[in-house]
Design a protein around this nucleic acid. Structure first.
Length: 1072
RNA sequence: GGGCGGGUAGCUCAGCGGCGAGAGCAUUCGCCUUACACGCGAAGGGUCCGGGGUUCGAAUCCCCGCCCGCCCA
């Protein structure tokens, strides 16, 4: 058989497509769950963190997926039945925003989205966009060499995953873990949806502090039903003075008194429900029992005491308080607008449960939360605000406009104090750039505060005895356990509704205006409920303290709405409070009936993380694998879930711990544990890797648009080079900076950082080219595997190094130390195999069958060890390498796995301990050391590499070098080793405390004495310096007494050698 | 505000009680030595952020401080 010669350089583009096609064609990455269930192989599984379909992948994803592929390929070669489940995520808001922007750029969308498109048409647009980007992303992953099970690829909104989402929602709803309530959210008035905190950014804005005077009044005197005509009685300065209010006497005694609030958002005063004062404020006591009458509106609100209120600088009790920048602007009085400010919301919560606000507002029938804005960002009296009073001219105004008007109205009434310019951060929406309005709206929540969810998640990481902790989930690096735990400790209920069109629609129908007989409807609902096809709940439900606020607000809203539209006949209000969750997405009978009688489905969609949280099980067909098989035509879903769930490892970045990992753990434990939160975790190990930053230290992200396309790097350096470099950078550091530059020739990004990987791949390629070239020349003898003991020193050394490296690599991958894996390979291949082994065998390998067997074994093992990180180049080499035959070396197994001829399914090397050869390692280290010394001398005398020199050894030393003389000559470029005295033109060097000589360095009659003198002087100086250090150490009495004896001995030996080396060099210097 | 990480060669980073503190790139010198110039051989280059402490011994452990970054409020 003729073995083809490999090209001189590895050109990735010449191989990658061919090899990828071969992998695809072989089905090598398709996991077979039956092998697990039949106990033919142990399972190893990973689910991909599904990339968003909003944009192409960047280098951060390249790192993430490279590491997953290393794990996947490693375990596949180790003999595990290995599943790497690929897929993509629909990314609700991000994708919707991107498509909306695109439509605008194309001129196909002007004005409001909701007016220009129907929901259905817009979703069709997004669907097309998703198809486009899903293909781009899949293409990127394939080009990177990811060995995913592509036949099983999923999408978070496909039928299989949608089924899981529907079931999960239904079960949580049924179990009372989902509720609907009013909460403050970040409201984007342009997109008209709630947005998450991480979808907002702060922008410095020039604004102002407005000082508004709020009149003080007495509570009306009579109890009982409120008399609308009874005006509240103003409190006068006189009275305040009598109550001991500091400074009251400076005002006209009989005039109505007021306090001043400072605010940057005067328009929200319409929603004020209290004024707060710090309990340490000297004015607080004097104000007890007094109230505020909101100008124009006429609403009476209480004065409450709360430590959150910033004291003005003049009253600050501590330095810290005075240093608060707000203290400069503060008046000590804070208008409390719980429906329009998160801090005020918290104050509202604190005081509504058992505080003054609660008692008082309850008695007056006033809500704690007054919402004065409509979803499009205008002042509105239709969303929970009834007491408009004289403020009606503000209704319908945009918030910014209302601000100006409020200021004017206060000014006209003499109620405007100062206006002071103030620069501060204002939250804006990432997607629309609109200023965020804190906004109270109806949202759906998962009650993750329930112990079955958050607490169960924490139990998974806790160490200790059951049931306190089961330690079934481990983070790597371990420190991230704390992040995970603290998140769950401080967790708040999870808002899962988004006011979008793209996503899983909330499967709940509300009672509206109904037609039909309530009794009949009830009967049907009960019947279906019994069949498990729907779940019925009346709102409100739940009983937490937190909800008390929301409930009171719900009441308020109902009052407001009722006055606004009082059309519905009372009989049909029977289902006004009814919420119905329909279990089956395609249960037409139920859905059609509900809609016929007037129930309407909630228009909102679920937060994307809700479906992501189910990813490890939804992709495997939960809850109905049989149905999943029917839907997809993939037959073995049933076995898939049994064989591969829970998965083995999750590989992701740290900001995902809270967003995604946490939710997967909660859901997996809940749904796979029959509702008690003690089910299995979705994965045993979570590996957190570094974040890739751009050259400016910003995180590469799809939304920032600073991502570098892996395909650019593949184009300039090749996929393996990119993978190796990324792997080599994956240390336990938190961030990796990756500056790139645009190559003017191609217009693509590239970076010199990847030269490391490219050079290494080329080095491996050429080593293989050389090795294969030698092995192809001589047909192998028909021979049993060679015993290591029969091999040469160099071969035994190489096999010993290989065995150590393999053990190190196994351990490194097991501990997720990817950079250790890469670096171990680098030095094994480059330093040991190329620099020493291949150089050393050149003169002998042609005639030494044992050496050829060792070469074959080494090369075969290296290809396998290298494959997980550099799959293309190794597979390309293997195409030729596998044609070679070799008797092999006993103790080093390079079996085929029996699953095809390709390297990707070859077995991982198993190297027996018997190949450990410390004696060979020691002996060859001595050779390396002498070779290096000779090379130093050669370099200093500028001896050309081709020129051979002669080594002169003392007669009694020579025998110790005789066995390795040939090796020494090869590596150091010697023509002879002699015991004869050197000729006049020679150079002396110190080795092992002895003075050795080299001659024949040039044809000139004399050597360069200047260079030689400088060289020797440096040796003397270096050794003298070292002697000082070592002598100092030994002179320390504590050292000899307390340090371990072998340390002391080592120091003594070092010192002896330094002294000998110094004197050898000094002697040579004298002779010169 | 709470939590976490980092500061080591010109650059990017390893090392985390005991090596004269390392690697890759960059720099300098010599080489197109028949696997590889994406290469070979050699060299120079360090108050291990600052200050205390523990220890026979600290880049490494502890305390204080100064910078930089991330996550969660």
């Amino acid at each position: 058989m003729t073995i083809p010669e490999l090209p001189k350089a590895y050109a990735p583009a010449d191989h990658e497509d061919r090899i990828r096609a071969a992998w695809d064609g072989s089905g090598a990455f398709h996991a077979d769950p039956s092998r697990v269930l039949n106990e033919k192989a142990a399972p190893y599984s990973i689910v991909i963190p599904p990339p968003n379909v909003t944009a192409a992948l960047h280098l951060g994803h390249a790192l993430n997926n490279t590491l997953q592929d290393v794990l996947t390929r490693f375990h596949r070669m180790m003999g595990f039945e290995t599943l790497w489940m690929p897929g993509t995520d629909h990314a609700g808001i991000a994708t919707q925003a991107v498509v909306e922007k695109r439509l605008r750029q194309e001129g196909r969308l002007k004005g409001s989205l909701r007016e220009a498109f129907t929901r259905e048409d817009f979703v069709t647009e997004i669907q097309a966009f998703k198809d486009e980007y899903e293909a781009v992303i899949t293409g990127q992953l394939k080009k990177m060499g990811c060995s995913c099970d592509w036949q099983r690829q999923r999408f978070t909104m496909d039928d299989v995953c949608a089924r899981a989402v529907r079931e999960a929602f239904f079960r949580l709803f049924l179990d009372g873990l989902i509720y609907r309530g009013k909460r403050l959210v970040n409201w984007d008035p342009a997109l008209q949806t709630a947005v998450a905190d991480d979808e907002c950014y702060d922008q410095e804005t020039d604004a102002a502090f407005y000082y508004l005077r709020y009149p003080l009044v007495h509570e009306r005197k009579h109890q009982g039903p409120r008399d609308e005509d009874e005006d509240p009685q103003p409190a006068t300065w006189n009275e305040l003075a009598a109550r001991g209010y500091p400074g009251a006497e400076e005002f006209p005694a009989e005039e109505p008194a007021w306090i001043t609030v400072a605010t940057t958002r005067p328009e929200t005063y319409l929603g004020d429900t209290a004024v707060a004062v710090n309990p340490h404020d000297p004015r607080a006591t004097a104000l007890r029992g007094l109230f505020i009458e909101l100008p124009l509106v006429g609403r009476i609100i209480p004065i409450i005491e709360d430590g959150y209120v910033v004291l003005p600088r003049s009253m600050a009790g501590t330095q810290e308080q005075a240093a608060d920048p707000k203290a400069e602007f503060a008046t000590g009085f804070l208008k409390v607008t719980p429906a329009h400010d998160p801090n005020d919301y918290e104050i509202g919560r604190r005081h509504s449960v058992d505080g003054a606000m609660h008692e008082w507002t309850r008695a007056r029938g006033h809500p704690v939360l007054v919402n004065m804005m409509s979803p499009d960002g205008r002042v509105s009296d239709r969303h929970g605000w009834t007491d408009v009073g004289d403020a009606h001219e503000l209704v319908g105004r945009k918030m910014a406009e209302a601000r100006k008007m409020v200021v004017e109205l206060f000014k006209a009434r003499g109620l405007l104090g100062d206006v002071r310019p103030y620069r501060h951060n204002v939250k804006h929406s990432d997607r629309s750039k609109a200023a965020i309005e804190p906004y109270l709206s109806d949202q759906w929540y998962v009650k993750v505060t329930d112990p079955r969810l958050a607490k169960a998640a924490n139990q998974a990481v806790a160490t200790g005895d059951q049931p306190a902790g089961d330690h079934s989930l481990r983070f790597h690096p371990e420190r991230y356990t704390r992040t995970f735990e603290q998140w769950h400790d401080g967790i708040r209920d999870w808002c899962i509704s988004r006011q979008l069109w793209w996503g899983h629609r909330i499967p709940v129908w509300f009672g509206g205006v109904l037609t039909g007989d309530p009794q009949e409807i009830r009967t049907k609902l009960a019947h279906w409920e019994e069949q498990g096809r729907l779940a019925v709940r009346s709102k409100p439900f739940g009983d937490t303290r937190e909800m008390a606020v929301a409930l009171r607000l719900d009441d308020a809203v109902e009052q407001g709405d009722a006055s606004a539209s009082d059309e519905s006949p009372r009989a049909n209000q029977a289902f006004a409070d009814t919420m119905i969750c329909v279990r089956g997405e395609h249960d037409r009978e139920v859905i059609d009936f509900l809609e016929e009688v007037g129930f309407e489905q909630d228009p909102d969609v679920l937060d994307t993380w809700f479906s992501s949280a189910l990813w490890p099980i939804s992709t495997m067909g939960w809850p109905d694998p049989g149905l999943a098989s029917k839907m997809t035509g993939i037959g073995d879903f049933e076995a898939l879930l049994k064989a591969f769930s829970p998965t083995s490892t999750l590989c992701t970045a740290r900001e995902i711990i809270t967003l995604w990992v946490s939710r997967m753990v909660m859901f997996n434990r809940y749904f796979m544990g029959e509702g008690h939160g003690r089910g299995p975790v979705p994965f045993r190990d979570v590996f957190i890797h570094a974040v890739i930053q751009d050259g400016d230290g910003h995180k590469m992200s799809k939304s920032l648009g600073n991502g570098v396309d892996p395909l650019d790097i593949i184009a300039s350096h090749g996929a393996d080079a990119m993978r190796f470099t990324l792997c080599q950078m994956a240390t336990n550091t938190q961030d990796v900076r990756m500056p790139v530059r645009r190559d003017p020739a191609t217009g693509r990004n590239t970076s010199e950082k990847f030269d490391l990987g490219r050079n290494f791949c080329n080095k491996a390629w050429n080593a293989a080219r050389f090795g294969i070239g030698i092995l192809a020349q001589v047909p192998p003898a028909d021979h049993a595997p060679l015993a290591p003991g029969t091999l040469s020193l160099l071969d035994r050394w190489m096999l010993s190094r290989l065995r150590t490296a393999t053990a190190d690599i196994n351990a490194a991958i097991g501990r997720f130390e990817f950079s250790v894996y890469a670096q171990t390979l680098y030095s094994l291949v480059w330093n040991d195999f190329c620099d020493w082994y291949l150089e050393g065998i050149k003169p002998t390998v042609a005639a030494d069958a044992g050496q050829r067997a060792a070469l074959h074994a080494s090369l075969g093992a290296i290809l396998r060890l290298l494959h997980p990180v550099a799959p293309f180049v190794t597979e390309a080499i293997h195409e030729t390498f596998r044609l070679l035959r070799s008797p092999g070396v006993a103790g080093l197994q390079l079996d085929a796995s029996g699953r095809g001829e390709m390297l990707c399914t070859a077995a991982w090397p198993v190297i027996d301990e018997s190949l450990d050869d410390p004696e060979a390692e020691r002996e060859f280290a001595r050779v390396q050391s002498l070779v290096t010394s000779i090379r130093e001398v050669r370099a200093q005398h500028q001896v050309p590499p081709r020129r051979r020199v002669t080594l002169h050894l003392p007669r009694h030393v020579e025998p110790t070098w005789r066995p390795v003389q040939a090796l020494l000559s090869t590596l150091a470029g010697l023509d002879a080793v002699t015991t004869e005295d050197p000729p006049a033109t020679h150079a002396v060097f110190s080795f092992d405390g002895r003075s050795l000589a080299v001659s024949g360095m040039s044809d000139a009659a004399a050597i360069d004495t200047g260079a030689e003198k400088a060289r020797l002087e440096k040796i003397v100086a270096d050794n003298e310096k070292l002697m000082l250090v070592l002598e100092g150490r030994l002179a320390n009495p504590g050292y000899a007494q307390k340090a371990p004896p072998h340390m002391v001995q080592q120091t003594k030996d070092q010192l002896a050698k330094a002294i000998a080396d110094r004197s050898a060099a000094a002697e040579a210097l004298n002779r010169l």
